[in-house]
Simulated assay, not measured.
Amino acid sequence: MPPTDANADSGPGPARPGAPVAPGAAARRGSAGPRADGAVTRRTPYAGFAVEDDDADCEDTLDLHLPADFLALFAGGTAHLLDQLPTWGTVVTRVGSFRLAPVRIDADLPLIHRWMNDPAVSEFWDLAGPRNRTEDHLRSQLDGDGRSVPCLGVLDGTPMSYWEIYRADLDPLARHYPARPHDTGVHVLVGGAADRGRGLGSALLRAVADLILDRRPACARIVAEPDLHNTPSVAAFLNAGFRFADEVELPGKRAALMIRDRVLREVL
């Protein structure tokens, strides 16, 4: 499972967090290849692809491998899995000009590492600690097949948030809800404490959701799964036009399944 959406601070707004549960360590997206700890895995069919699932427990890894013939359908490489996200450009929002800038390890790692060690972030992302822990998390996406892209959110020229835009239908999350082709997932954290609690999170979530719908015409839904215990994050998604669809039990947390529907774009 990807890390929990955290610190999408919404300011005042309705929240539907459900029954509180003790926050658990968010299990991270597994990397392709054999398990380093030697755990026995089994291969099972999943949406036409091969899935490796730990025989003993699936808390930390569930590797979905896209076959070469599937990837070959995307002329020009795996960047097409997310419709060339690096070219999506800048959008004007009510809080300023905003763009998603794919992470560059050498330039961006110190800032992201500092954010991940903020206690308000680490409670839900579980990536606090030495720099290599954050680096490994980023590289597992950057060196992957293109189904997840880590980005900095740049507002009026200043990096102030971290985002993961990913193919939810090609992600382990799809095992836990009725996924549809081209569902696109979002994780987000607002980095600086000064940027939280004043509505930036919900404004940028709405802007990013609209950007995804504009740039990915095949995508009918945007999904997110914040921890039910993370009330500010749930409220931010609600204020950004997402609807509460269900409670789902994920490795390490009970989550609120939040969905933004293309067909309801002008309503919510």
Rank of each mutant, 00 (worst) to 15 (best):
T4K: 04
P12M: 06
R16N: 09
P17V: 03
G18A: 06
A19R: 12
P23I: 11
A25N: 11
A26F: 01
A27D: 05
R29L: 12
P34R: 01
P34S: 05
A36N: 07
D37E: 11
D37Y: 07
V40S: 09
T41S: 12
R42S: 14
R43G: 09
T44V: 15
Y46V: 14
G48R: 06
F49L: 15
V51N: 05
D54F: 06
E59C: 11
H65K: 11
L66Y: 08
A68W: 08
D69L: 04
F70C: 10
A72N: 13
L73F: 04
F74K: 08
F74V: 12
F74E: 12
A75T: 15
G76N: 09
A79T: 14
A79R: 14
L81C: 13
L81T: 10
Q84M: 12
Q84S: 15
L85G: 11
T87Y: 09
T87F: 12
G89Q: 15
V92Q: 14
V95Y: 05
V95D: 08
F98H: 03
A101S: 14
A101D: 09
P102C: 10
I105D: 08
I105G: 08
D106R: 08
A107S: 13
A107G: 10
P110G: 06
P110M: 07
W115K: 02
W115Q: 00
M116R: 05
M116G: 02
N117G: 11
P119N: 12
A120E: 12
S122I: 08
F124R: 03
F124M: 11
W125L: 13
L127R: 09
P130W: 09
P130N: 13
R131I: 13
N132L: 14
R133L: 15
T134I: 06
D136S: 15
H137P: 02
H137C: 13
S140E: 12
S140I: 09
L142C: 13
D143E: 15
S148A: 15
P150A: 08
C151K: 07
G153W: 02
L155W: 01
G157I: 05
P159Q: 02
W163N: 00
E164D: 11
E164W: 03
I165R: 00
Y166H: 09
Y166D: 01
P172C: 08
P172Y: 01
H176Q: 05
Y177A: 07
A179M: 07
A179R: 01
P181T: 13
H182I: 03
D183P: 05
T184F: 02
V186E: 01
L189G: 09
V190G: 04
D195W: 10
G197D: 08
R198V: 06
R198P: 03
L200S: 04
L200P: 00
G201K: 00
G201N: 03
L204V: 05
L204G: 00
L205P: 03
L205Y: 00
D210H: 13
R215A: 12
P217W: 05
A218T: 11
A218L: 15
V223K: 00
V223Q: 04
A224K: 04
A224Y: 01
E225V: 09
H229P: 04
P232W: 00
A235G: 10
F237Q: 01
F242N: 02
R243Q: 00
E249M: 05
L250T: 01
K253V: 03
R254H: 14
A255C: 10
A256C: 10
L264G: 07
L268T: 14
L268C: 11
